[in-house]
Amino acid sequence: MRIRTWAFFTGQAFSSMRRNSWMTVASIGTVAVTMIVLGIFLLLGGNINNIAGNIESQVEVSIYLQDEITSGQVDDLAQKFAAMEQVALVKYVSKEEALQELREMYGESGDFLAGLELDNPLRNGFRLRTHRPEQVLEIVPTLRSFDGVAEVQYGQGFVEQLFAVTNVMRVVALGLMLGLASAATFIIANTIRITVFARRREISIMKYVGATDWFIRWPFVIEGMTLGLVGSLIAAGLVAWAYSAAVVNLAVTIPFFPLVKPWPFLLGVSGWLLLIGTTIGVLGSTLSLRRFLRV
């Protein structure tokens, strides 16, 4: 279509919004509120994912070796671990290194560790990381079956619970978002339906002079898209502002609380809000037009 025709459609959309200004404000407001709630969920979801990811990535398998094991057997085991397809990282930790780590962990209060290097009670061992945290559960039985392995620890129980909780949270967040998005779609559909209804006489005139359905539809689609876009822009702006402020304040009051850094996280969240808001607008107007085009 010609650019001029698009200019005409846009002009039509905007004059319709001006004429029904209170309805326009109301639906932009509704979209904004919905998108703010959705934005809060996205922020929460992102942070939950981040925390879960942090914890998950720290899931490690510690393997303690029998004391009488030879260095040849240790090399042999290292190769066997590395050959397992789930294993991403194999690290040998001698008992001296383990002691050193304990010292660093306890710092000044680590006096009780003094003198232990003479008779180190710790054991030589390995630490493994898997490609995906949940693979830990798969490999533990195999690890236990190797000769020379005295003990395998992986935070039993805790890992299973963590996965269960994060999965439930993801499903709940997704469900809430879908619910909110469809509610906003119906609100826009209603707004457009009111303008379509007010203009059904004009629509029938357009049909008599030979306008195609898309010629009639576009101004309404542009109107819905604009309502969705403006509403979600407001929401994205508010959400971004509030989150940035929250990050700054939390850094002071609760240091080390692992909030996701605003940049580029907020860019992603705003992008999603704009995309969903605009889609909702287009969807709403298309829905409400279907019935009225049969003239």
Binding site: E202, Y208, V209, G210, F215
Partner: peptide, 22 residues
């Protein structure tokens, strides 16, 4: 077909009792 109807109407001018203007 519904999509062809607009092109038919472009060949037929219509005038009604109630004018039907914007």
């Amino acid at each position: 077909r519904p999509s062809e109807i607009p092109y038919l109407r472009r060949q037929i001018g219509t005038v009604f009792q109630d004018f039907r203007l914007m």
